Amino acid sequence: MSLIAAEKTATGKNATDKNAAENETATERPAPASNHRGAGLGVLLALLATVVWSGSFVATRDMADSIPPVQAVFWRWIIALLAVAPFAARPLWRQRALIRRHLGFVALASLFGVALYNTLVHQAGLTTSAGNMGMIMAASPVIMAGYARLGGERLGARRLLGLLTAVLGVLLLVGKGSPTSDFTPGDLWMFAAALSFATYSALLKRKPAELDGLAFLLTTFVLGALMLAPAYAISLTVQGGFPVTAGTVGPLLYVGVFSSAVAFFAWNRAIALIGAARAGVVYYLQPVCVALLSALLLGERLGLAGAGCMVLILGGVALSSARQRGR
């Protein structure tokens, strides 16, 4: 018995020494490269979503004269959920109990990110230009950073400086060289949309880690469409339907498949990897993308002042996105 006890004691001591050595090695070991790759992927996904959403403002403005806003948004999400369902139906069914447990959170995300945000964007498209829509939406990263700060996240001097630089560039771009501008009703609708989108992005930080991204996405699409259904029925009764032509179906397919299914999945994943505040900095590229698309598709000239504003925006994004040394 004493020999067995001694062997157990020695075995336990060896295991303890081994664990201590492993802990010491882990402490000295540098951060894994996968963290850096994850951050890089997060930035790329945020950039993908930003570029796709930039094109959606052109499509939304194009639909404004032919499709009532609520009807456009409703069909946008019907198309989006049909596009996502083949990939998300199985994880959604597998996690149905988890989704029921967090239904309040998912419904809140659906309200701000699906139903409210996009309705405000389409409403804004009635009385403002696609360029202004994209530029004003660049206000949302400021709100995201504010939410992050309220949540206890330290932004750091470099990120704050980059944030302020990008804000100045956006203000000058909207004001055509002046930090002030006369806003139309559509511009004010877009500011409300920016607040709604920033709130949605802040909510994503609280998404349960075990909740599958595709299952979450499909659930928000379904709930968002259900929230919009009563308003859609009223709009259909009062305003009538819209003509089904290539000019209406084409933009709807773009905003439904790319701007909704693809871009929202990329944005949600980006926030999971790099956080809402850092993803919001990448979102500052949207005015640049919108301006370039407007020049390419609509023949609008940017001008020297606009080019200078873009330099400020790009510089601010680069400064805020750079990783701090030792992090």
Rank of each mutant, 00 (worst) to 15 (best):
A130W: 02
L150P: 03
R154L: 05
L171M: 15
Y147S: 01
I136M: 09
A145C: 10
T184E: 15
L171Q: 06
V174T: 09
G134F: 03
F183S: 01
S178Q: 15
V174K: 10
A157S: 11
G169T: 03
G186F: 05
R154K: 13
L150A: 11
D182G: 12
G177R: 06
E153T: 10
V167N: 00
T165H: 01
M137H: 10
I143R: 06
G175T: 04
P179N: 13
L161D: 02
G177M: 10
S129R: 03
D182W: 12
L161Q: 03
G131C: 09
A138K: 07
S178F: 14
Y147C: 02
L173E: 00
D182P: 10
M135E: 04
A130F: 07
G175F: 07
D187N: 13
G131E: 05
L163F: 00
W189Y: 13
L160Y: 04
M144V: 10
R149T: 14
A157R: 13
L171S: 14
A139G: 13
A145D: 00
V174Q: 06
G151P: 06
M135L: 13
Y147N: 04
S129H: 05
F183Q: 06
S178V: 14
D187H: 11
A130I: 09
V142E: 05
G131Q: 08
L155N: 02
A130V: 09
L155H: 05
R154F: 08
G151S: 10
A145V: 12
I136A: 03
L163G: 01
P179D: 14
S178D: 15
L172N: 02
N132W: 05
G169Q: 06
L171D: 04
Y147F: 14
G156A: 03
M133N: 07
P141N: 12
M135D: 08
G156R: 06
A130C: 09
T180V: 15
A130S: 13
I143Y: 10
P141H: 13
K176C: 07
V167F: 15
R149W: 14
P185M: 13
S178A: 15
V167E: 02
G175S: 04
L168I: 11
A138Y: 12
A145N: 07
A138V: 08
T184V: 09
R158I: 01
G134R: 06
T128K: 02
A157D: 06
W189V: 05
G169N: 00
M133R: 08
T184Q: 15
L171W: 15
G152P: 07
N132Q: 13
M137A: 12
T165C: 14
Y147M: 09
L155C: 01
D182N: 11
A166D: 00
A145G: 06
S181G: 12
